[in-house]
Design a protein around this nucleic acid. Sequence first.
DNA 1: CGGAATCCGGCATGATACTG
DNA 2: CAGTATCATGCCGGATTCCG
Lengths: 122, 122
Amino acid sequence: MAKKDLYGLCPYVTSQKILSGKWSIYLLYLLQEGPVRFNELQRKMPEDITHTTLSRQLKSLEEEGLIIRREYSQIPPRVEYSLSEIGLKFESVLEALGNWGSDYIEFVKHKNHTMEKDGEAI
Amino acid sequence: MAKKDLYGLCPYVTSQKILSGKWSIYLLYLLQEGPVRFNELQRKMPEDITHTTLSRQLKSLEEEGLIIRREYSQIPPRVEYSLSEIGLKFESVLEALGNWGSDYIEFVKHKNHTMEKDGEAI
DNA sequence: CGGAATCCGGCATGATACTG
DNA sequence: CAGTATCATGCCGGATTCCG
């Protein structure tokens, strides 16, 4: 059954597919610290994101097994998202990604700086 | 100048943008072991990819500073791609990604297995 | 409050053909 | 062999609306 043969069972291809969602990484990052409610997630996003989009991304991550959706039967509704077991394991990736991202930002700053010094206007 | 403000200087958002290319992760993975020629890259891709697409992805990664394109003036042309300094630093991410991807594949296999045992046909 | 259903637009990818 | 130019298209994200 294994849906889509798990992309040839290649870990990199598989990872790529899962990270293809525009907000997947940041959502997993936000969920690291425990259960978060839907609206709270929306507010914490670095850019504006409609609830439609957020809903889809979360549903997708849930179907892939990375996150858990817990619904409390009350009015008004309360839904919390958290990392699953395999989602928790993703934290090592997040850490590497965070470190590298910071390095990369510094790299680009430096690159721009030297470009200015050289008087390039590209 | 800093193009697009580096996505708010957030490491996760920045990383997400760079990994948005459909093949970025796998390309970086392939380039880990040293310079690779264009056609060689194309052959090593896990799925068929047109040279148009490959060319664009490589150009994109090059502009972002992750890879280096070296052209040898000869006929027929010979172009080799390799990781830049910041691209080399990405290897820690690749390692984490590879490990997690393998775990995830196992996770899905197990999930499917138990689903079959339970006789679910979803 | 959280989400489903639609519609729409953009853009990345893919297909094809041409160049040095 | 490697790349560009052009055109087609499919999918994803965003906007809006309705629902419980």
